[in-house]
Design a protein around this nucleic acid. Structure first.
Lengths: 184, 184
DNA sequence: CAAATCATGTAATGTGTTACATGATTCG
DNA sequence: CGAATCATGTAACACATTACATGATTTG
């Protein structure tokens, strides 16, 4: 699944520019795209070429010009068709697991230190996302149901990170107990 | 984080060939690499070139020849150094969330159908992983602690998929209630 | 006036997947 | 004898990130 459908998704909430989309992606952690220019501007050119997005150049008396894209009827149809195809399974990439597979090379205290740093990074990330959420980020367009769904989308990564933090905590407890048993 | 350290990790459990690693990656869902040749064989050439893995060609009287790689002292040191660097935060890519952001285009029953199909895919994936786990997959080398950690690694994706399934179920319930309220 | 923000784009590189290509051996 | 497995590798493409490049405007 490429970034195109995510862009079309944003455009269903109203026309915007490449720069606007960039910010939207940066805000929407759940969508996992970094919001880098290369993909967004290229994708917009493609969407316009395919007739899925229309383009209007906005030249305000002050401020820089921008290209404002809107979803077309054809774009809405393409998006709907895609929505009805089979959804992808989620992917979880956890670098920490790749580290754990080599933990044999670490002393118990080194391993616990690694997990402690991981737990701390998780904590900070969670705090950051919660702060963003409190400030009411993300589009809140559309019907009641859509607003509800956007909240669900924004909450999801926070919930997963919390679950990850709990997992690390329980793993550290288990490793602590094991160390005690070994030393007996 | 590239595949190199994952390969070195496997090699700490004993020397093996590219083909052996391929199978190991296919078995280890938690490591998320697909086990494709291109990455593995290229990475092994690189690791050997950098002196992190040693190479011995095994030519059995019957059966195809294979190149058996083992981790070197230098490789073990490099792996240990990496283990002590800051761990990466986990990444969760959930295509379903990209779909939900455009759900405005769907009727309630279409949306519920989408979520139902997602739930079913999750169920099947979970069953498959549980079956693999029952058959005792994955390396079980090293100390007691390492065996314990491998179990933790293998259990992790299953736990996450179960959590995802629960989330979908609760989302469907919430959407159902909402639909009732709207129609009142 | 310096830094941040608005706004568009390109280049280079890294990472990952699918498919292709080849050939021997083993097993039903 | 045909299919699966063992075993190595390449080609083409898809997806994603960082950094570079430019220039106007706004704000402290």
């Amino acid at each position: 699944m490429s970034i195109e459908f995510a862009i079309l998704g944003f455009l269903t909430g109203g026309a915007t520019s490449g720069y606007g989309l960039k910010k939207a992606f940066l805000d929407a952690e759940a969508l996992h795209w970094s919001g880098n220019n290369n993909q967004i501007y290229k994708a917009l050119v493609q969407l316009h070429h395919d007739g899925l997005a229309s383009l209007a150049v906005r030249q305000p008396t002050d401020g820089p010009a921008s290209k404002v894209y809107a979803i077309t009827r054809k774009g809405r149809a393409a998006l709907r068709d895609w929505l009805l195809t089979d959804p992808e399974l989620p992917e979880f990439r956890m670098g920490i697991l790749v580290r754990l597979m080599s933990a044999d090379l670490l002393e118990p205290d080194e391993l616990d230190g690694l997990l402690a740093r991981y737990a701390e990074e998780l904590r900070l990330k969670i705090l950051g996302l919660e702060e963003l959420q409190r400030r009411g980020r993300g589009p809140s367009f559309g019907a009641t149901r859509q607003v509800f769904l956007w909240q669900a989308i924004n909450r999801r990564p926070i919930a997963l990170l919390r679950a990850e933090a709990e997992w690390v905590a329980s793993l550290r407890r288990a490793l602590g107990k094991q160390a005690k048993q070994e030393s007996r």
